[in-house]
Amino acid sequence: MQGARKSYETSDPLEAIAVRIPWDGEGDGLEAMARCFIEEYARMGWDPPRIAKLFANPYFAGTNGVLELRGSDWVQRLIGEVFGPTAAEGGD
C-alpha cells in the first residue's frame, strides 16, 4: 500500500447530479416517454404481456409510476397502438 491520504478536491465534490425535467401530467411529456419505453422493448423482441409486466411491477419505479398515474387501461391502449393488430394475439 502506498500513497498519502487524499485531500478534498473542490473540483470533484462527489455530488449527485440530477436534472429535473418538468411535466404537467398531460399531453406529450408522459405519453411520449411511455410510448418510447414500449417501442424500445418491442424493438428488442419483447411481447406485449412481458412489456405490460414492466408497468405492473412496483420494483420498476419509472414505468410503474406511469401506471399509477394513468391506469392500466391507458397503458394497455398504448401497448396496443405500438403492436397494432398483433397485440391481441400476444405475439410470440
Binding site: Q2, G3, A4, K6, S7
Partner: peptide, 11 residues
C-alpha cells in the same frame, strides 16, 4: 512516480 506526485495513490 511517488516523488513526482506525492499525493498519488496506488495500491
Amino acid at each position: 512516480i511517488q516523488a513526482l506526485h506525492p499525493d498519488m495513490q496506488v495500491d
